[in-house]
Design a protein around this nucleic acid. Sequence first.
DNA 1: GCCAACGTTGGC
DNA 2: GCCAACGTTGGC
Length: 157
Amino acid sequence: MSTTRARQYWLMKSEPDEASIDDLAEKGTLPWTGVRNYQARNFMRDQMRIGDGVLFYHSSCPEPGIAGLAEVCSQPYPDPTQFDPESDYFDKASKPEDPRWSLVDVRFVGKSALIALPALREHEALADMVVLRRGNRLSITPVTAAEWRFITGKLMK
DNA sequence: GCCAACGTTGGC
DNA sequence: GCCAACGTTGGC
């Protein structure tokens, strides 16, 4: 018997040059490769469940912001790029018998009109969003159910 | 290109 | 375990 828990929500940053919401729409699903930060890894490895909601965020680009919706669609598994010497994400200290980096696959749900970063900051309801905190650099951050409802219900309407 | 913020590394 | 140096992220 499996334990159930309420659906949880996440914001995941991607540089559109590497993987944009259009790339995800075209491919259907994408493995979330390249995370090399322990906190972000732990979210994927230890806390995400299939079906969790994902705000797909474009970062390090001319117009940073939320570009669409996705959902977690796999269990966590080792990021194959960590073992590939040709990859930018190669980690020579990580051994296949004890992988350091995990990821999940995400599935395209929908593209939205871009909700740009300054627009996100306008809303009192989003004042405490982790991604909006000063100095935040985490590429994966938790989103509360209230924030999710506000963004998907009000801002994407 | 700048720089604030913060994670990681490594000497001690 | 401390902490300075260094590297990276990511908005501007």
